[in-house]
Amino acid sequence: MSQEVEYRRGRHVVTAMHVHLVFVTKYRTNVFNDAMLRRCEDIMIEVCDSFEAELRAFNGEHDHVHLLIHYPPKVAISKLVNSLKGVSSHYLRKEFTSPANPAITHDPFWSPSYLAASCGEAPLSIIKAYIDQQRRPT
């Protein structure tokens, strides 16, 4: 079962770039419920749109979220991450701060660290084998 790769086409470039991001709450505090995760996903979609990127998948648990983003080559992942975390922190604090959820009132919302893993259609071993099989001129 093969999937057709969706390519982004620019004036001088054709790309298929995806990144898997994981953001953890500060001190891995259990903050999220279903309503917060739904709102967080909406915020992440809006931020991705502003970077001309597309949020392909989103999910989370009580203390972290996973994102799969299809992005153009002009986007620096660190800037995208900074915006995703900053904007979501601002709106989630603004909309969900209550006596019932004191964990997000004073401390930073997200841990400063994050996971960013590049994703592609083929595993690295297949790409490496393909490169190794090229006929190098002698």
Rank of each mutant, 00 (worst) to 15 (best):
T25N: 07
V22F: 09
F23L: 12
L21Q: 06
R28D: 03
L37M: 13
A57W: 11
M36Y: 06
R38N: 15
A53F: 06
S50L: 08
T29M: 11
A53Y: 04
M36T: 08
L55G: 04
V24L: 08
V47D: 01
T29R: 14
L55M: 12
C40N: 09
A57D: 15
R28L: 01
I43P: 00
F32G: 00
N33D: 15
E46D: 15
D63H: 07
E52S: 13
M36R: 06
C40W: 11
E46S: 14
M36W: 04
L37G: 10
D49F: 06
E61H: 09
V22H: 10
I45E: 03
V24S: 07
R38S: 14
I45Q: 03
L21P: 07
E54Y: 01
K26H: 12
V24T: 12
I43R: 02
N59Y: 04
E41R: 15
I43A: 01
T29I: 02
R39N: 07
F58W: 12
N30Q: 14
D49K: 15
R39Y: 10
S50W: 02
M36C: 03
D63A: 09
E52V: 03
H62Q: 14
D49Y: 09
F58V: 13
N30A: 13
T25P: 07
G60P: 05
L21W: 05
R56P: 01
E41H: 11
K26V: 00
R39F: 07
T29W: 06
D49M: 10
L37V: 12
C40F: 14
V47A: 04
D42M: 04
S50C: 08
I45H: 05
M44K: 05
E46F: 03
C40M: 12
R39L: 02
T25F: 09
R38F: 12
V31G: 02
N30G: 09
D63K: 06
D63Y: 06
C40P: 01
L21T: 08
D63S: 07
D34F: 10
V31M: 02
R56M: 15
E54G: 00
Y27A: 12
L21S: 06
A57M: 15
E52H: 12
R28I: 01
V24Y: 02
